[in-house]
Simulated assay, not measured.
Amino acid sequence: MNSRLKEVAQVFFKLGCFAFGGPAAHIAMMEDEIIEKRKWMTRDYFLDLIGTTNLIPGPNSTEMTMHCGYERAGKAGLFIAGLAFILPATFITALLAYLYVSYGKLPQVEPFIYGIKPAVLAIIASAILKLGKKAIKSAELIILGVSVVIVSFLGVNEVVALLSAGVIGMLYFYLKSKTISTLNSVEPLLLFFGINATLAKVSSLKLFLIFLKVGAILYGSGYVLFAYLDAELVSRGLLTRAELIDAIAIGQFTPGPVLSTSTFIGYQLSGFTGALVATTAIFLPSFLFVLVLNPFISKMQKSKILRYFLDSVNVAAVAVMLAVLFVMAKETLIEWQSIVIALLSVVLTFKTKVSTIWTIVIGAVLGFILITITK
């Protein structure tokens, strides 16, 4: 393994072990590792990757790892980055699935998660500040970003908001430029991955097709994943709703992508083979999407009208992160313990050079201590 591939593997394996808090937090930690510390690419290009990743199905933060791996070490880097990020969560989830199936309950990890959530808020806020400075290039983009925050609060789907912002911004800035030029012909490459086959009775094949379908069409948060899996598994009688809720909970409080839920469910349905099959199937479309999309990003940057589109989508992506931060803060900062941890995390993030990973660890330990001594 060459030095760049080794570096990619180390960075994303480390993030896979400590990246709690969902896609916004994962991307914030990547920004710290990749832009601040290692300078693999410019913050502008990192923003372009975020913008385009938000427009395709699949787990956004996992796809960002693949993009970053591709940029650092080519196609091999794409696969190494994705696998390194996914593997820790898959291993932990498989272990928890074994304990769950064997003993019928989940480990008591809530005190640690209690401390991680407010710590994550500071990390996301820091990334929003840094990315926002790059994304906001004009007063019009500020207005566009504020509009996306507002419609996000009103419940508009984030993909709809991003696409709408991109199209509106592209048309506005193109008309504003008043430049008559021949636009480069752009041949959009859309990869539609639909599975509509009759599922075989073979357990592994059934699992593979179900999770491949979910991975290929999934947009949105863990709540959207819950709805998809409810339709595919509970409605078919393969899983009870209580078991599905436990599986989603596992995905939420383990590090890395929430799609590690698939590992837990696969184990429940068909042991370690099922865990491997379900995990492979749900992440496979993301590897394919990124492999196809990544080479087009640099071409999109060179097209004037697509540059307008990317600029608008980028500011919209930061706006969505801001809306997510607000919702997370509202749900998290409800007790004095969480507020104390959040304030300490803000100090660590903005006033010191402490790594985001150490901020997560300190938050988890402090959460355990405060909950243990006060309850």
Rank of each mutant, 00 (worst) to 15 (best):
Q252E: 14
I195N: 13
L199P: 03
A227C: 07
T182L: 11
P257H: 01
G220A: 01
L233V: 10
S177M: 08
N196I: 07
Y267F: 14
G194L: 14
E232P: 05
T273N: 13
K213W: 00
Y172T: 08
S270A: 14
I282W: 00
E243W: 01
L190W: 15
Y223G: 12
T240M: 05
L276P: 05
V258H: 02
G271F: 01
R241T: 13
K201T: 12
M170P: 01
L171N: 02
L233N: 06
P285Q: 04
T240Q: 07
K178E: 10
T263E: 00
G251V: 03
G222H: 01
S204I: 09
G222W: 00
V202N: 13
L191R: 10
S203I: 10
S262T: 07
V258Q: 03
I248Q: 08
L239W: 02
G215D: 00
L225M: 13
V290D: 01
L218F: 05
G271Q: 02
S203R: 15
E232T: 08
A242S: 15
V277T: 10
L269S: 02
A275N: 03
S286P: 04
L209K: 14
S204E: 13
V290K: 01
S260Y: 00
L225R: 00
R241N: 14
T263L: 01
S221W: 01
V258C: 07
T179M: 10
L276H: 05
F193K: 11
Y223F: 15
K176G: 09
I250A: 12
L205M: 13
L233T: 09
L239I: 09
Y228F: 15
G237M: 10
N196G: 15
P255M: 05
I217E: 09
D230C: 07
L259A: 11
Q252A: 11
A231S: 15
I248R: 05
F272E: 06
L229C: 08
A247K: 00
G274V: 03
L212A: 06
S185W: 10
L171G: 02
F289A: 04
S177A: 12
T179F: 08
L205A: 12
S221I: 00
S203Q: 11
A278M: 10
A227P: 04
L229I: 08
I210K: 03
V202W: 07
Q252N: 11
A242F: 08
D246H: 11
G266I: 02
A249L: 10
A249M: 09
T273S: 13
S177P: 06
A242D: 14
V224E: 09
T273G: 14
A242W: 06
I250R: 01
I168R: 03
G194A: 09
R236S: 15
I195T: 12
S203G: 06
K178P: 04
A216C: 04
F264K: 01
S204T: 12
L233P: 03
Y219T: 03
Y172R: 07
L218M: 13
F264A: 01
F193M: 14
L205K: 14
E232H: 08
F193R: 10
L269P: 01
E187N: 13
I180F: 11
T240A: 05
T198D: 11
K201R: 12
I248T: 09
M170K: 02
L225T: 02
T240S: 15
T240I: 05
F173H: 12
L209R: 09
Y174S: 12
K178H: 12
G237V: 10
D246N: 15
E243N: 11
A275C: 08
I248A: 07
L269E: 00
Y223W: 10
E232L: 06
L229V: 07
S181L: 12
I250S: 04
